[in-house]
């Protein structure tokens, strides 16, 4: 398939102050119409990656290319004028992402006002209808509507400038299992409707298994494995992926599942272990892992992993 409409992330490095890289060298491609899942735990850099894609985190190295331009090379002002029309984000807490002092109608008009355009009332109405939201919502404030509705309004606002790509940062966090399905079906529908490429950031593997076609597993700022989601779930190659999959709770009353319990915790990004970043916790760690950092390599098309002794 053509990757003409795609975000190409190459060697991305994102450092917050004091030179501590939260993301150190990530290569990813997000194609339009596809859903790419990014999973990892706290400290993995997945949220930082999301923020870098929408200009909320500074790019210290590497490139993010889309539609012929490199985000890393743009000035802040250029980025501010150009990026919102191509990549948007929905935040983890949808109610908090809406200004408490603005009605939802005004919040939806913000994208137009920010860019000095006339507010397109018809477009707003059409988008509200497409997302299943009643017109009466426009007069309400964020704290007056349900969490689910606020979530949809935030998505509507993000889609107002017709971006091609949507970053979803933990979109199901805080959602009960019984309503999660509804929301995910909704996401699938709007993806098809608007032809969006979605970057789905989550720590919830069960959700990611169902909603993404490709998956990238992040550990301490690096990609340890990527590939087709089903393939990874069927046969993970990296020990961390295996542990992560095994850690995800599934309905298992007979206790048949063999759980991999890792020892220790993820190191902090400012002080990564030498050699393979995962070696202190890895059940298969050998001498080579302590000294030599494994590079991402491919053994089959579409699959990459960084391990000296893949599963």
């Amino acid at each position: 398939m053509s990757h003409a409409d795609a975000i190409a992330i190459r060697g991305l490095v994102v450092s917050y102050g004091a030179g501590v890289p939260a993301v150190s060298g990530v290569d990813l491609t997000l194609g339009a119409g596809r859903t790419l899942g990014v999973v990892g735990e706290s400290g993995s850099g997945k949220s930082t990656l999301a923020r870098a894609l929408v200009g909320l985190a500074p790019i210290s190295g590497g490139s993010i290319e889309l539609f012929g331009r490199d985000l890393a090379a743009m000035s802040r002002a250029e980025r501010r004028r150009w990026l919102p029309f191509h990549v948007q984000i929905i935040f983890q807490d949808p109610v908090a992402s809406l200004s408490p002092r603005m009605t939802l109608g005004r919040a939806l008009a913000e994208p137009f006002r920010i860019h000095g355009r006339a507010v397109d009332r018809e477009a707003i109405a059409a988008l509200l209808a497409a997302l299943g939201l009643p017109e009466s919502l426009s007069a309400k404030y964020p704290h007056q509507v349900s969490g689910g509705q606020a979530r949809r309004v935030a998505i509507a606002r993000a889609l107002m400038l017709k971006p091609r790509f949507l970053i979803a940062d933990e979109p199901t966090a805080g959602l009960d299992v019984s309503v999660q399905g509804d929301f995910l079906n909704f996401m699938t529908r709007i993806q098809a409707q608007f032809g969006l490429g979605i970057l789905f950031i989550s720590h919830n593997l069960s959700v990611v298994a169902r909603t993404t076609q490709e998956l990238a597993v992040l550990y301490l700022g690096r990609i340890v494995e990527t590939g087709d989601t089903r393939a990874i779930f069927a046969h993970p190659r990296h020990p961390y992926t295996h542990a992560l999959l095994s850690a995800a709770p599934t309905i298992d009353p007979e206790r048949r599942k063999q759980r991999v319990i890792l020892r220790g915790e993820m190191a902090s990004p400012g002080n990564p272990p030498g050699g393979c970043r995962f070696h202190p916790r890895c059940p298969l760690a050998a001498e080579r892992c302590r000294t030599e950092e494994p590079q991402l390599r491919s053994e089959e098309a579409g699959r990459r992993f960084a391990c000296h002794f893949p599963l």
Binding site: L56, R80, D93, A96, S99, E110, P111, I114, H115, L161
Partner: peptide, 14 residues
């Protein structure tokens, strides 16, 4: 650092 301010930034607010 409130999310709604970050949302404004991502929408392109100066």
């Amino acid at each position: 650092h409130r999310p709604f301010l970050e949302a404004e930034i991502t929408l392109g607010a100066s």
